[in-house]
C-alpha cells in the first residue's frame, strides 16, 4: 500500500502531498504523522498541498484534524501552497479551516514555523 513520505528537517516535519488523496491514504497519513511527531518530538509540521488540484470535505477535515492533534502534541502546523481553485472550492463548501495556519509557499511556511517556535 502506498504511503505519503514524512521527511524530517531539523525540528520540523515536512509532508509533501503529490498524489491524489483518497480517504484511506488520508487516514494513514494522519496515523503516521502522529507517530512521527511523538517519535521525533518535532516542533512543527509543514504540509505542502500545492500539487493537489482537488480537495473535498474529507481532506479538508483531515487537515483540520492534523492541525488539532499536532497542537496537542506541541507542534505547530502550517499548510502551504493552496491553489486558487482549491481555496475557492473550500470557501464554497463552507470549510474555512479554522485554527489552521496557511502560507503561500514552502519558504514562507518555514519562516512562519520558525517564528512561532522561537516565540514559544
Amino acid at each position: 500500500m502506498d504511503r505519503i513520505p514524512i521527511l524530517q528537517m531539523g525540528q520540523f516535519l515536512l509532508v509533501t502531498i503529490q498524489v491524489d488523496m483518497h480517504d484511506q491514504l488520508a487516514m494513514t497519513l494522519q496515523d503516521d504523522l502522529s507517530e512521527r511527531i511523538s517519535a521525533t518530538s518535532a516542533r512543527g509540521v509543514l504540509i505542502d498541498i500545492s500539487a493537489l488540484d482537488m480537495v473535498d470535505s474529507f481532506i479538508g477535515r483531515m487537515i483540520s484534524t492534523i492541525s488539532g492533534l499536532s497542537r496537542i502534541m506541541d507542534a505547530e502546523t502550517v499548510v502551504v501552497g493552496l491553489q486558487p481553485a482549491v481555496a475557492i472550492t473550500l470557501v464554497e463548501l463552507g470549510l474555512t479551516l479554522p485554527g489552521v495556519s496557511t502560507a503561500l509557499n514552502v519558504e514562507r511556511g518555514m519562516k512562519l514555523l520558525r517564528e512561532r517556535v522561537a516565540a514559544q
Binding site: L90, E92, S101, R108
Partner: peptide
C-alpha cells in the same frame, strides 16, 4: 467575507 476567507486559506 468569502473572498477574504479564500485569501486567508491561501496564506495571504
Amino acid at each position: 467575507l468569502k473572498t477574504v476567507t479564500a485569501i486567508r486559506l491561501m496564506g495571504a
